[in-house]
Design a binder for these strands. Structure first.
Length: 582
DNA sequence: CACGTACCTG
DNA sequence: CAGGTACGTG
């Protein structure tokens, strides 16, 4: 009964997208190529030791040969989604207690790093050769010198120091500082040389990469140290060679300061801001008064001092070794390859100090990360939450959540319901959002906040929700266009006859997408909106407007005004059972 | 610059 | 559906 499968409808005129692409190619190609060059270098460094994979877009500019190369370049770009940490061995560190093995591992990692640096060096020269100016030759050589000798040495020293003396926690932080100092020195020299902006970009990127790699190494060692000496945080902290607390604070501040230079996004300000955003007010009150709060364990103590909330008894919270250990393991078990595994494995006491056994029931998370992970035991609620959070999150959120996990909130004055708020969107929320689409196609973020009351909103969550609706719209409009074109091909002339009824093919497609299982009664108003959308597309295409690159915009504008109110029932819960009429 | 949106891709 | 990117706005 359907002689014309929908997929067959061809565009009547050539697609506007094509024009855009062409324009881009000539306009920004050069600029883009520059950036791509730097990016691909870094990618090559961290991804693949294979030099061929390092093909840059410069080469594409200069020589049109080897399509394969550029393709492999693009391939890399795609596959790089989750930036793989260089060393897959990091995860192995957890659970390995033998010192020798550890040392061996560190040595290995050092070698890997050095090798990467060498590759980088090669690549850098390649790029530089392509560059016409010879002025910066000297600067380049300086960089290379630093990369190969100075930095390598420093790394070696740091690592040796770390393995030699596990008892001095401070070792970790000073080494951390050393790393940054080296980087700073490097940056000074680089800046001194008369570098082009391109080279500066490269150097910035390099510094970032190096800093990351260094802190990775340090972090893994620290993690090991802490898990070997549970309950000794206080002593270790007190053994810091700074006499007074103020000095310590200064020290931390300086560390943080250098961190800021390398990682502007990880500044303490942002951290605190996001913390406040991500969790409860009570905690943020405290943290906001601690400007030098950083992701490092030593600063944990600093947080408790200027306590703005009188009733908050931090010392009590810190008294238990079990808790301390858990805090540490959670605090440290982040940011590296396989952080899931390490986090879970490094927490000996899996029962949370606070009984919060799945307060929101079996929350099923559908992120690919979740799916791939096998849990030795079912994760407790804290882990669940952080996993959920992470599944939705960006790097920024990731670090934060690890810190937040370490805070025994329920001991503080935080209402249970606040804590109970989900820090990630669940399939239930997705379903709800889809149903809401029947009422609103263009929900504002404020509207979303009022309808997802059980969700702890932050940047990630908000944009994810918005993205959902964006995706919904995309699908919606694609269907509309498809069916409108099909109608034209079928010879329909009067758009008045185009109505979306409940038994129409178009409705089936939409219902399948937004209301799988048909367990919700689609409101009539949506059918009217859909009909109107279809008609708009129909007449626009028939009038040949689709030759205009932005011919859909007017339609979007019309449809965006047709949002209707969402039933109150949607506010109630994440998965609105009461809405689902069977 | 941050945010929202659209487009494209896997 | 999520990522990335580009573009327009405030």
């Amino acid at each position: 009964q359907n002689p014309n499968p929908p997929a067959l409808a061809p565009p009547l005129s050539h697609t506007p997208i094509f024009c855009f692409r062409d324009k881009d190619q000539f306009g920004n190609e050069h600029l883009r190529a520059k950036r791509a060059r730097v990016e691909s270098i870094i990618q090559g460094m961290s991804l693949s030791p294979n030099p061929i994979a390092l093909a840059t877009s410069v080469e594409r500019d200069r020589e049109h040969n080897t399509e394969k190369r550029t393709e492999s370049c693009r391939e890399n770009k795609r596959k790089q989604k989750l930036p793989q940490q260089q060393s897959p061995h990091v995860a192995q560190l957890v659970g390995i207690s033998a010192n020798a093995e550890e040392h061996h591992y560190l040595k290995e990692q050092l070698q890997v790093l050095q090798q990467q640096l060498r590759q980088l060096q090669e690549k850098f020269f390649q790029v530089h050769e392509l560059n016409d100016s010879d002025q910066s030759q000297e600067g380049t050589e300086k960089i290379m010198y630093l990369l190969t000798e100075k930095h390598g040495d420093s790394l070696e020293k740091s690592i040796q120091a770390l393995t030699r003396d596990q008892h001095k926690v401070l070792c970790g932080s000073t080494s951390e500082m050393e790393g940054h100092k080296v980087l700073e020195e490097e940056s000074k020299i680089v800046i001194k040389g008369d570098l082009s902006s391109e080279e500066r970009t490269l150097s910035e990127t390099l510094k970032g990469e190096l800093a990351r790699v260094v802190s990775q190494a340090v972090d893994s060692v620290l993690k090991k140290i802490f898990s070997s000496f549970p309950g000794h945080l206080s002593q270790m902290y007190d053994s810091l060679p700074m006499a007074t607390a103020d000095n310590r604070r200064e020290h931390l501040a300086s560390v943080e300061c250098s961190r800021k230079k390398q990682f502007p996004k990880a500044s303490s300000q942002n951290l605190v801001k996001s913390l406040a955003e991500a969790q409860t007010e009570a905690l943020s009150l405290v943290l906001e008064k601690s400007p030098d709060f950083s992701a490092y364990p030593v600063s944990l103590r600093g947080v408790r001092k200027p306590c703005q909330v009188p009733s908050m008894s931090y010392p009590l919270l810190m008294s238990s070794q079990v808790q301390e250990n858990q805090i540490l393991s959670q605090l440290l078990g982040y940011g590296q390859t396989g952080h899931w595994n390490s986090r879970i494995a490094s927490s000996p006491d899996r029962s949370s100090p606070v009984s919060l056994d799945q307060p929101w029931g079996a929350v099923k998370l559908r992120s690919s990360v979740m799916r791939q992970q096998q849990y030795p035991t079912s994760p407790n609620s804290t882990q669940m939450e952080s996993l959920a959070f992470l599944s939705a999150g960006k790097a920024e959120c990731r670090d934060l959540q690890s810190i937040m996990d370490g805070m025994p909130f329920s001991s503080i004055h935080i209402s249970f319901t606040d804590y109970q708020k989900l820090t990630a969107l669940t399939p239930g929320h997705l379903k709800k959002a889809k149903l809401m689409f029947f009422f609103t196609r263009y929900p504002s973020s404020t509207l979303l906040k009022t309808y997802f009351l059980d969700v702890q909103f932050n940047r990630c969550i908000t944009s994810q929700l918005i993205k959902w609706f964006s995706n919904f719209r995309e699908f919606y409009y694609i269907q509309m266009e498809k069916f409108a074109r099909q109608a034209i091909l079928e010879g329909v002339t009067d758009c008045k006859g185009l109505m979306v009824s409940r038994n129409s093919e178009l409705f089936r497609a939409l219902n399948m997408h937004y209301n799988k299982g048909n367990d919700f009664e689609v409101p009539d108003h949506f059918l009217e909106v859909a009909s109107l959308t279809l008609q708009e597309f129909f007449s626009a295409v028939r009038a040949g407007k689709d030759s205009d690159p932005s011919w859909k915009k007017p339609i979007y504008k019309i449809i965006s005004k047709l949002d209707s109110d969402i039933p109150e029932a949607f506010k109630s819960s994440s998965c609105p059972q009461e809405l689902l009429q069977s």
